[in-house]
Design a binder for these strands. Structure first.
Lengths: 196, 196
DNA sequence: TTCTCTTGCTAACGAGCGTTAGCAAGGCTA
DNA sequence: TAGCCTTGCTAACGCTCGTTAGCAAGAGAA
């Protein structure tokens, strides 16, 4: 090797570049040669750092899953405050994770299907568990009379759906910052569009 | 050929099967041999009916785009009724298109990226135009005091986001029918979750 | 200096890809 | 009967895929 820029970790660099490519072209349509070129090296060289293409996808998906759980647990850690507010905090925390790394989020949301078993099944278990966290909050909110919806499970899916579309249009350089977006999303989803 | 079941059109049959595969495995990860096997024939035989793999994707994406425009135009055809109700109708019409063919909808929403130019650009023009239709309705609703939101463009994205996640969890055999789902989604998005 | 770790190269592998050419057989129409 | 259209097959093409083996060179530690 000749020299190198201040490389934090070559492996992490590969992950980042791959994530960006996976997002725009999709996992299956991204070749290792493409990834190597984007990093300025040859395809074979990648394998000095990683075991396989799928290993990258695995790391990205499960890494972000951990981020989501961490943020959620923090958001609802104080169980003494009203559930509706806990929900708002969890919702805003979710948005902050989404906006912190849009590429990883998009991969997390769309490319997990290309994980092979048993990784894929394990991922879905985590995803279900995360959704269940929100569902519990909403159910509790309805029970305590703070929220209204005919179907908590249905409301949960719709709520997360609204949030998860964000990586497909959010641009970090846009006029709205992460916190502003999180706030507005919470307002709209909790308050609705109709003037009351 | 030996004989054949009541084949409506072999080409349409290929489109349908391909759409289902594109949905579950993704366009890039679906091979023509896989598609052929699913149809009970050999890979080469497909080319008696279609020109290319991408041609299928093109047809699915633009076909559904036409469906969405048709449903939208119908929903807002009577401009004498209040905008908020027009919006509700457009929203419910959108959901009905989504639920009528979940596989095609999923492909429309996620796989259009694999269209090559100029098809891809043309598709995005249609998509923007469709979103603009909703945005106009919401803007108008705010102007007339029927809706409230700090940012109509933002609200539009969130609204469509909530709807477009539907194909990833909707199952035709589920307990909720298309109309019921359309109604509940409209209620939740227009009315919000918070008890007022 | 010597050893080891990291990083990267070249060359090649077996496999699968989308697609084409050429042929054949059944069914419809004239 | 003759001709065409639809449908499907086999065999193969050129290409790209993910991955591996073997080698080399710089960097830091002993």
């Amino acid at each position: 090797m000749i020299s190198s820029a201040p490389t934090r970790s070559r492996k992490a660099q590969i992950d980042r570049t791959a994530t960006a490519l996976f997002r725009t072209r999709g996992y299956a349509a991204t070749s290792m040669r493409e990834l190597a070129t984007a990093l300025g090296l040859e395809a074979g060289s990648l394998y000095s750092h990683i075991k396989s293409k799928e290993e990258i996808l695995h790391r990205v998906c499960f890494g972000l899953a951990a981020d989501f759980f961490l943020a959620f647990d923090q958001a609802i850690s104080d169980s003494s405050i009203p559930v509706a507010i806990q929900l708002r905090q969890a919702l805003e925390a979710h948005v902050r994770v989404l906006t912190r790394d849009g590429a990883a989020s998009a991969v997390f949301l769309h490319e997990w299907r290309h994980l092979s078993e048993p990784g894929r099944a394990e991922f879905l278990v985590l995803r279900d568990r995360y959704e269940a966290g929100f569902r519990t909050l909403i159910t509790q909110g309805v029970t305590e009379g703070q929220l209204h919806t005919p179907d908590a499970a249905f409301a949960t899916l719709t709520l997360l759906a609204s949030l998860n579309w964000l990586p497909s249009w959010y641009r970090p350089e846009g006029k709205l910052g992460p916190d502003e977006i999180a706030h507005r999303l919470a307002e709209q989803l909790l308050g609705g569009l109709l003037k009351s």
